[in-house]
Design a protein around this nucleic acid. Structure first.
Length: 526
RNA sequence: GCGUUCGUAGCUCAAUUGGAUAGAGUAACGGACUUCGGAUCCGUAGGUUAUAGGUUCGAACCCUAUCGGGCGCACCA
């Protein structure tokens, strides 16, 4: 909708005109402050310029009015334009909000270590990433969702040790000596039980089998993670394992050329050339690669697959890491600007004002699966997607369980369900409803229609600015308008019934589309 | 200490990315037709946008300083 208006203005003025929505809808549908920026150039007051521009619009089918107010130029769309657009959307519900964006994008997110189930912090990244994915795809981008599996290094060794100790301690009743760092949790005793079943109890005591058990457990845990993600409608296209990358190490090292150097038998990367505090070790003096080494090969592999853009969603605790990975990308001969890192901040969970702990055994870890079980995927997704991901988030789990307006997902779902109820109640057929035109609407109805038709702009804005919270914000605002309209306006049995139902169909379409882009199904009944 | 990021109503968050009178929800209080779902709606109250300067037609947003919180500052991932 906005695209058509700005294209029209571009034709008229020969350059892009900034279109905004006016603070007060009574001013019109769109507004532009362009007269302010022209004022200096033309050496005239913004008011006069705006006046001149406004009167230069003659008869025009898109606008019913173009007026200048206080230096702003306000545009009012014609009924004809709005009805035609609404009818098109209702006839092509799946295309509503789609766009013709192009480009192959590699989106890496979650990438949690396969050493335990997902915790609530991972959920935020997962929801954010998946929402971005759905928005981008709807706009036309060709996006691959990828999960990087850290299946190498210390943590895998630690997993093997933890698994054996856990089994010997809880299953075999042995008293064991726990190391300083180890993993714990119910999932480990479950896995230990499987070990006994599949390999026999001896496998728990045989230290030489630690690695084998760790790799076996890693796959089982990854499967758990995939299940968890499925529970919140998050799906990945590709999984890339860290361990599988190291065979490319020599080749990638050579490609880095001057970017790496040897010192005291260790290999460093010159990341300080690219804004890092100091150079980083990539291979230790005993020959073992560091974590960064894996990431260097991984990013080389990403760029060799040749996407137009790369987005990584990382936890905020990794922000110090951005400089070195970008440095590596530069040394590898690629444009680091193509690599975009979005950070998702930490999440802390409260229950009745107290830190919420899921299990005595797992200490402070709050598992995502448990939260989903408690509040449901829809509420979790809506909640997490609602928050800008660069601010720290704290929320109370009891708040989410409430099924009233304090939980915004019900507010939005209720709006959709209300519309469905009305449609079911009406005796008009779909054809009869579609045959009417959205003319002579009241100010409230016009406002509701316009708001509902705004979804495509919201989707584009949310994706391009990487601020997915704009979608739930929009859905809440649209739902509020709907509820108010419903309260104020009698629909069934009036002479405007068909027209108003057509309007509500547009609203329902926007809500349903918006929710589906958040991985949530709209409900017809609650 | 250095880097980075944030600071908006009591609380959780917005604010079209520099635009019109800084808005929602929640908590508090008051109200809503024998009518389409009261899981809703309306009203009251709540603000020196952390502080002080600066940039310009115009600042919550940009610049500088200060104060306060988060996160980093590994040859851990």
């Amino acid at each position: 909708m906005k695209q058509r208006v700005s294209a029209l203005l571009r034709d008229k003025f020969n350059y892009d005109v900034a279109l905004e929505k006016p603070k007060d809808r009574s001013f019109g549908h769109f507004a532009t402050p362009i007269a302010f920026s022209l004022a200096k150039e033309l050496r005239k007051s913004p008011m006069i310029i705006a006046q001149e521009i406004a009167t230069s619009f003659g008869e025009e089918s898109t606008f019913s009015a173009v007026e200048s107010v206080g230096g702003y130029i306000n545009f009012r769309l014609s009924e004809h334009f709005l009805d035609e657009y609404a009818s098109w959307a209702l006839d092509h519900p799946l295309q509503f909000g789609q766009n013709t964006k192009q480009g192959r994008v590699l989106l890496e997110f979650v990438s949690a270590n396969p050493t335990g189930p997902l915790h609530i912090g991972h959920a935020r990244g997962a929801v954010y990433g998946d929402t971005l994915l759905r928005l981008g795809r709807h706009l036309g981008y060709d996006i691959t969702a990828e999960y990087y599996v850290n299946d190498a290094g210390n943590q895998i060794d630690l997993l093997g040790v933890s698994l054996q100790l856990e089994g010997r301690s809880t299953l075999l009743g042995e008293s064991v000596e726990w190391p300083e760092k180890y993993y714990r949790g119910e999932y480990l005793s479950d896995l230990a039980r499987d070990v006994v079943e599949q390999f026999g109890a001896e496998a728990l005591r045989d230290e030489s089998r630690q690695k084998e058990l760790a790799l076996w457990a890693k796959d089982k845990i990854l499967a758990l993670i995939v299940e968890d993600l499925k529970g919140i409608n998050v799906h990945f296209n590709t999984f890339v394992g860290e361990a599988s990358l190291y065979e490319q190490w020599d080749r990638v090292m050579a490609k880095m050329g001057e970017g790496v150097y040897l010192n005291e038998a260790k290999t460093f990367i010159r990341s300080s050339d690219h804004g890092d505090d100091h150079d980083r070790v990539v291979v230790r003096d005993d020959g073992r690669p560091t974590y960064l080494a894996g990431d260097i090969i991984y990013h080389n592999q990403k760029f060799e697959r040749d996407y137009d853009h790369y987005i990584n969603i990382w936890g905020a605790d990794h922000h110090g890491y951005i400089a070195r990975v970008k440095a590596a990308v530069s040394f590898l001969g690629y444009d680091p600007k193509k690599l975009e890192v979005q950070l998702s901040q930490m999440v802390s969970l409260l229950k009745d004002g107290e830190p919420f702990k899921m299990s005595k055994r797992s200490g402070t870890v709050i598992q995502m699966g448990d939260v989903v079980e408690e509040i449901g995927s829809d509420a979790l997704r809506f909640m997490f997607a609602s928050k800008k991901c660069d601010t720290a988030l704290e929320f109370d789990i009891e708040e989410l369980k409430k099924q009233d307006s304090s939980n915004p997902i019900y507010y939005v779902q209720y709006a959709h369900a209300r519309i469905q109820t009305l449609l079911a109640k009406s005796e008009l057929t779909h054809e009869q409803i579609m045959a009417t035109q959205l003319y002579d609407l009241s100010a409230d109805a016009d406002g509701l229609l316009f708001e509902a038709l705004l979804l495509p702009e919201v989707i584009e804005d949310a994706y391009e600015s990487r601020q997915v919270q704009k979608v739930p914000d929009y859905l809440k605002a649209l739902s509020a308008r709907l509820h108010k309209f419903y309260y104020d306006t009698r629909i069934i049995g009036t002479e405007d019934e068909a027209k108003l139902l057509k309007l509500l169909l547009v609203v329902a379409l926007s809500i349903k589309t918006g929710l589906s882009l958040m991985g949530i199904d709209a409900k017809d009944r609650m």
